[in-house]
């Protein structure tokens, strides 16, 4: 059964930005889009081991800090070399000013 886990407070993430969230030995990335929606993906790039939270959010894209690989953080879709494997995404909801993500 998938659990909802509190990842951070809404104000912890700036608009069009990302932060890292570690839970149960895993790392996630929590995004706040320019239109103020929240999203969550795996925290590491699928190309090599780089924290996406150190990357750059542009519109609905997260660019990896290591080789500039790009993903759509809303769908997890890899947008081309050097990233070829999609990113896992997780359901997100906001409750009482907290960002919750559902982790399987």
């Amino acid at each position: 059964m998938a659990d909802w886990v509190e990842a951070c407070a809404v104000d912890d993430v700036e608009e069009e930005d990302v932060i890292r969230f570690d839970h149960g030995g895993r790392t996630f990335a929590i995004y706040r889009s320019p239109d103020d929606e929240f999203f969550a993906t795996d925290g590491f790039c699928t190309h090599e081991k780089a924290h996406l939270a150190d990357g750059l959010v542009m519109d609905d894209i997260i660019e990896c800090p290591k080789h500039n690989g790009r993903f759509n953080y809303k769908t997890g879709q890899a947008k081309g070399a050097p990233v070829c494997v999609n990113l896992a995404t997780y359901p997100v909801k906001v409750e009482a000013g907290k960002v919750m993500i559902q982790i399987a």
Binding site: H47, E48, K66, H67, A81, P82
Partner: peptide, 13 residues
């Protein structure tokens, strides 16, 4: 353009 993109990624890793 393909092989060099990958070799450059390796250069950065």
């Amino acid at each position: 353009p393909v092989t060099w993109r990958w070799s450059h990624a390796r250069h950065h890793t």
